[in-house]
Amino acid sequence: MKIIVLLKRVPDTEAKILINQDGNGIREDGVKFIINTYDEYGIEEGLRLKEKVGGDSKVTAVCAGPEESTEVIRTALAMGVDDAVHICDPALAKPSPFTIAEVLAKAISEEGFDIIFCGKQGIDDDMAQTQSILAEKLDIPQVNNATVFELADDLSKAVLNRRIEGGDEKVEASLPVIISCEKGLNDPRYASLPGIMKAKKKEIRVKNLADLGFNEAPSSGRSRVLKWLPMPKGGECKMVEAEETVDAVKELARLLREEAKVV
């Protein structure tokens, strides 16, 4: 079985995200990058599937991103992924999900695939689009936000739970399929040291756009960032006070609805 896992290099969840001086992106100095946390569930699920199916199953990581992505690719290899394709091209700086999906579709088709795992969204731009666009480009079904994944014994279809508001949808999908993973699907493993050592020797095939047969970055679904804005939020805790507790609580409820917009 040919298993593809997609990964993305993103800033750590704890990183201080500040707008850069030119106002056209974030400051990358002092920012630590990691594998997109949701992609890790995908890697884990891919590895478990390989362990379950056995035979000549293989897990290949595909990552589109800057040169520095090598580090996160190695992390995936250390977890047990067999090999990796790294799509790296200066023309792919700040790509839209549509561009990336088109490039990924090409690379994945070249690799061959039975099942594709990825995270439900990148924790950087939080778009949650690439996997569904990719499904469309590859003309395969998609299951987003998977919390349970099982493969039928005859390997023909996957049975999944997909997280929706207030519950799960149970979905049956024929293979090949792309599955985006939600928290709770599994607990990703901690790479063992022999795994880390072996990862240093595993192959990462670096491909640029030309290698994939593109003359330039695909132009579909383009958009432009007009402006980056900081989140308007004071650092201090707003202490809600009133003479009567009832009034303070009423004020709190109002703030939660009108200011914090969480109600």
């Binding site: 750590d12 969840t13 704890e14 990183a15 201080k16 002092g30 630590k32 990691i34």
Partner: peptide, 13 residues
């Protein structure tokens, strides 16, 4: 590994 402290608090702080 990521933030050089056991609590997952951003190292920059």
């Amino acid at each position: 590994e990521v933030n050089y402290n056991p609590w997952s608090i951003g190292f920059s702080t």
